[in-house]
Write a protein that binds this DNA or RNA. Structure first.
Lengths: 102, 102
DNA sequence: GCTTACCGTAAGGCATGACTTACGAATCAG
DNA sequence: CTGATTCGTAAGTCATGCCTTACGGTAAGC
């Protein structure tokens, strides 16, 4: 939902791998777990965190649940980074100007 | 250095606040701690993590150390996000096309 | 209906991480 | 040279997080 939850969700390596997997191609839980060195429940828990952060969404398909990436989640984080990027560049320019006075 | 360390560094709320503070204006350690509900050593430890991630750099000034934000650190993370953004949008487009066949 | 496949949740263990206080090093003021 | 300021690091505590196994619930196949 917020960029803070997105940041926290993507900070874990295996959870980030889970997201990258579904970002490349929508996938069922078991299929994701097969490609990772963790158990299926672990993947399920990671998917819950990603879902709460708004990074993925589910579509039920029989007993299987297909998870897919959601653009809005990443957009949230990108907006925050762009904001921060502006501040950093502004301060960086001031510093350069201080070293090279007109 | 890597986008992974940057992601991890910015995942903590107070550490993120520390970075936002120096991003707005270069600052000494004590001055940062005064604006936060944590002790000065805690800020020092956060600054070390931020420094290892390449997000800040130091300039010694007598006994004081002025920390400032470093654009390259954020650039690393932005590049990773843009890469991910491309994958997500591509998959998103496929999904739309599947629902609205030509 | 009964079995099988797929999945979420609960409970517990174990490592990691964030914070504190205490201490030591380095610099400036007097 | 002494005292004061500023800071980094060490040691220890305590919470949080990630993973595991165990269980229950739902849908498909025969």
């Amino acid at each position: 939902m917020t960029y803070e939850s997105v940041l926290l969700a993507l900070s874990d390596p295996t959870r980030r791998k889970v997201f990258e997997t579904v970002a490349a191609k929508p996938c069922a839980v078991g299929a994701i777990a097969d490609q990772l060195p963790v158990s299926r429940p672990a993947v399920s828990q990671h998917l819950k965190v990603l879902s709460d952060a708004g990074l993925v969404h589910v579509t039920v398909q029989g007993t299987r649940r297909i998870y897919a990436a959601r653009p809005e989640g990443l957009a949230e984080l990108r907006a925050y980074l762009d904001r921060l990027w502006g501040d950093v560049l502004t301060e960086f320019a001031k510093e350069i100007e201080k070293d090279n006075p007109a």
